[in-house]
């Protein structure tokens, strides 16, 4: 089965073509602001390298974030268009699962905890906590955005309860922001750049092994990015005059729209 995988939610434009979970060709491109220009040509180049046509693809896997809002929409929109035009099933995979998989591509005999953290500004990170062992992947904390501090607490709390194995932290924090992610104990650290080449192959794996069920038929249209953060305007609107029962607040009233 020919599988096409793509992700544009991080600074890495990740694409791979595989037979099942075996990658035939892959690319990880870290050209700043290059994703929108390069995604589709990269897909076509890789397929051609493998002697394949877009029509030969049988399954599409796409990273649905969280990560860059604008970025994640590129691959999701492209994958939905391809899947619906070709009548293919689409497997929406968390970008965090793909990043975690890239950091830990094999199946360790003793279990390992993998914590991908993607910078989400204002001291926060998109993250999820996974545990991988010979038996496969288990998601301990599903993708969400939290203060880095909260992620530290989650990890320590889990350590108290059950071990879950050594911690592997994979992140995209820039050098000047890395102070934020100190204090994760003995965690082994990797950067997103170091694991970039493994992101799309991890998507292939998740899709080909059926870890995430494919979306088929009309439902493919409804696949959407998992932003995990609401649009700022919606949050502000609800704070201001959207929420009933927010009693103590001064109400903006009907004329309370912001000026120009």
């Amino acid at each position: 089965m020919v599988v096409l995988a793509m992700d544009t939610a991080t600074e890495v434009l990740a694409v791979a073509v595989g037979r099942g979970e075996e990658p035939l060709a892959g690319a990880a491109v870290r050209v700043p602001r290059g994703h929108s220009r390069l995604l589709q040509p990269t897909v076509l180049d890789l397929l051609r390298m493998c002697g394949l046509n877009p029509r030969d693809v049988e399954l599409v896997a796409v990273g649905v974030g969280p990560g860059s809002y604008t970025g994640v929409r590129l691959a999701v929109s492209t994958a939905k268009a391809m899947a619906t035009a070709l009548g293919l099933p689409l497997v929406p995979v968390s970008t965090l699962r793909a990043v975690a998989g890239a950091a830990c591509p094999g199946r360790p005999s003793a279990s390992v905890r993998v914590l991908p953290l993607l910078f989400a500004r204002r001291g926060r990170a998109f993250g999820a906590l996974y545990e991988v062992s010979a038996a496969g992947w288990v998601c301990r904390i599903p993708p969400r955005v939290e203060a880095v501090e909260a992620w530290r607490e989650h990890v320590h709390a889990a350590e108290g309860a059950e071990s879950g194995g050594p911690l592997l932290l994979v992140h995209d924090f820039r050098p000047q922001d890395q102070g934020l992610i100190s204090g994760f104990g003995e965690a082994r650290r990797m950067t997103l750049a170091e694991v970039a080449g493994g992101i799309a192959p991890a998507l292939l794996q998740v899709a080909a092994r059926g870890e995430v069920a494919p979306v088929v038929g009309d439902a493919v249209h409804d696949v959407a990015p998992e932003y995990t953060l609401r649009a700022q305007a919606e949050v502000k609107w609800e704070e201001k005059d959207g929420m009933a029962g927010d009693g103590g607040r001064e109400s903006g009233g009907p004329g309370g729209k912001p000026g120009e």
């Binding site: 929108s36 995604l39 589709q40 897909v43 076509l44 877009p54 029509r55 809002y69 604008t70 929409r73 590129l74 691959a75 929109s77 492209t78 994958a79 939905k80 268009a81 391809m82 035009a85 070709l86």
Partner: peptide
Amino acid sequence: LLGALLVGVSAAKGYALATG
């Protein structure tokens, strides 16, 4: 709007890629 335009452009390129 750049973010809005990019959705249409990405989808259109996906269609062009899929259909040739």
